[in-house]
Design a protein around this nucleic acid. Structure first.
Lengths: 222, 222
DNA sequence: TTGTTTTTTTAGATGCGTCTAAATTAATGC
DNA sequence: GCATTAATTTAGACGCATCTAAAAAAACAA
């Protein structure tokens, strides 16, 4: 068993995990410092500490890779984060754009048992309020086959299942336009001029969305 | 508005609050170091920092007193602690001897809104799983008139409403003997030899308890 | 009152997590 | 291949929260 990690160490692991998810392997010192908004010097320091604890593999100037232990730890943090977000939305009626900061705090609470009970209390949810998959107790993640809305052809029916951009402005935009998780839609038209899309949503309503919106919404084909 | 406090600062405030609750005013450096299991030198340090932030009044050779701000802060911590304990027991089915450590972590989560929503979710409980009163949003505490079981005369009917000793062994003892919150009883006999008490509990059962147990159970006369 | 004990403060140190500035090393563009 | 640019590491510093050891001050007791 690894000893208790500090919040700072946990945050670095999460950042490394996140970066390596989206950009393949070795994670550079620099990308970490950008992701975490810290100086490169701090990153070098922390990398040494995490290596020491066998959470990452580190070869000087060759980048960082999570060890198995590091990856398990990171996935467990993601699990905690997403379960707490689900709790906040489902039970305490927070909106999906309010929960991130709170979950950032709650994810550092140390107790395997607590999280498993929370999971049970929430009825073992598979996805969080943003549509992101929640890893199970063993770190297994149920991946969904999903595509970006922008990649669909005209005429395609689809249902909104997740967001790529988690920012408050984007979430609030979706709230306002009703493009929430579970919303069904058909691609009506694609305007080559600016790559905006005309959607047909519930009640035969038409909705025009920009390319940027289409590139940040995950959907499942129907 | 006070800026965010560190967990260490919050823990000191809680300790000072606790000590001053049970032993009247000025709190000595020494009592804090005993309560928190730290060196007196650390306490001196922290006292200076807390004074700086206007959370405590410190007069040389006269000990420490919480300022209004300090007391409000401490009470709010108690509120958070007790609400989380209630959540853990009521919603996640932890037992009352399992929740203290977890609540010690959870009480440091920073969000007024979270706590108020948790309070609402729990239906504004007045007492936590150990029978301790939960301060409301404004820091008001509903005190109950209660006495120690050991102080009751023979023949008195009473109901268990709280524990003075919160230790796991004591809580587990109560679990085993069924002397839980809400249990009704009558003082049957008092043995002068060792000050043990014979109780009559539910179903005409008799239960013999030691003086120590009687001195750690709060009851309300009926 | 005067010595002993207890409490409190000071001095100096440590580890964590951060920083800036400077030095070094690697990568990139001609 | 070499110069410029970018990434990384080192060096040195700082604030927080802690410690031990020793000094100083207060409280207590004979």
């Amino acid at each position: 068993m690894p000893d208790q990690l500090s919040q700072a160490e946990e945050n670095y692991l999460k950042a490394i995990y996140k970066i390596s998810r989206q950009s393949g392997t070795p994670v550079s010192n620099n990308s970490i410092s950008v992701e975490m908004n810290t100086s490169a010097a701090s990153v070098t320091d922390m990398i040494n500490r995490l290596s020491q604890k066998d959470l990452i593999h580190y070869q000087k100037r060759k980048g960082v890779r999570l060890t198995d232990l590091g990856e398990i730890t990171a996935i467990h943090l993601v699990r905690k984060h997403r379960l707490w977000e689900t709790f906040l939305v489902e039970k305490l009626n927070f909106t999906w754009d309010e929960v991130h900061e709170l979950a950032e705090q709650l994810e550092h609470i140390q107790s395997r048992e607590l999280i498993n009970r929370l999971d049970e209390f929430l009825d073992f949810p598979k996805y969080d309020p943003h549509g992101d998959p929640i890893p199970d107790e063993n770190g297994r993640i149920t991946e969904r086959q999903q595509v970006l809305l922008s990649q669909l052809p005209v005429g395609q029916k689809a249902v909104v299942v997740g967001v790529k951009d988690h920012s408050t402005p984007f979430l609030q935009y979706l709230e306002r336009t009703g493009l929430l998780l579970g919303a069904e839609l058909v691609i009506g038209e694609r305007f080559a001029y600016d790559n905006s899309l005309q959607l047909e949503v519930a009640d035969e309503q038409k909705l025009l969305i920009s390319q940027k919106v289409g590139q940040n919404l995950y959907v499942q084909k129907k």
